[in-house]
Design a binder for these strands. Structure first.
Lengths: 128, 128
DNA sequence: CCTTAATTCTTACTGGTGTAATAGATATTA
DNA sequence: TAATATCTATTACACCAGTAAGAATTAAGG
């Protein structure tokens, strides 16, 4: 599993739309993004183009319009970013991360309870 | 709590040394970094300078040498980065993150156990 | 006091990112 | 088929980051 291409912050916003709605045209991407951002459509086109160049997106011509599909999966990308984040800041250890969150009171009681029940579920999963 | 300055990846390597050993001189920083990297001392000096410009480091002259001290705390910085990471990839929800880790089998049984015992400790802490 | 060696400051260059405008191609319509 | 409207491709530009070389300064030793 070689490293996936680097996706910048703005490009990632584009990818979130593509992952959700692919196959999707330039115009549709632009429409969706304009609901939550104020980028110029030109800017969005540039981002799409760069994603194609990087090998993150591919497209097919449908008459005059391009329709895009992702070449890499969202969960793979997020997985890679998560790993690199954990390595950088917590020595690759998620327990260290959680522990530091708890120590700095960044988790509410209900979040902690959510985590507990998640972990007990995954306990049962292992049992079967 | 206004946003802390942005620290780049290479700059962060410098900061790890400073946080650990401050107050520390340019030469000492360079020495430590050369144990684990192959940067030119010139490069390291540039990074230090940029950190000073950004307001992350301050220094005092000790005769001809500069001795540096951090202006921001490691845990504050890591906290900020963690928050922005969680927001970006998991909607700010650490339970979602953990859940996705478990789903994609990125956690070993022993890591899961570590998390469980961490959470039961923090349970007791809340009790007192 | 002047030279030298050590240290800091200034400048440089490439590549990526944010942000977009303009030019070029193509399909649709008059 | 020619003009127009719509897409896509090319070009632009400033700033940040990685990476470093060269210039300037300053302390110390002869």
């Amino acid at each position: 599993m070689s490293a996936l291409p680097q996706i910048s912050e703005a490009e990632y916003e584009v990818m979130k739309i593509v992952w959700k709605y692919a196959p999707i045209s330039t115009n549709e991407i632009t429409e969706k993004l304009l609901e939550t951002s104020s980028w110029s459509p030109k800017t969005i086109q540039t981002l799409i183009k760069r994603l194609v160049n990087k090998g993150v997106l591919t497209y097919e011509k449908e008459s005059r319009v391009f329709v895009y599909t992702p070449l890499i999966q969202e969960c793979d990308y997020i997985g890679q970013e998560s790993k690199s984040f954990l390595d950088r800041f917590y020595g690759g250890n998620i327990t260290t991360m959680l522990s530091s969150f708890i120590e700095n009171d960044r988790l509410s009681e209900s979040e902690i309870n959510g985590l507990r029940s998640l972990l007990s579920e995954s306990f049962h999963k292992e049992e079967n």
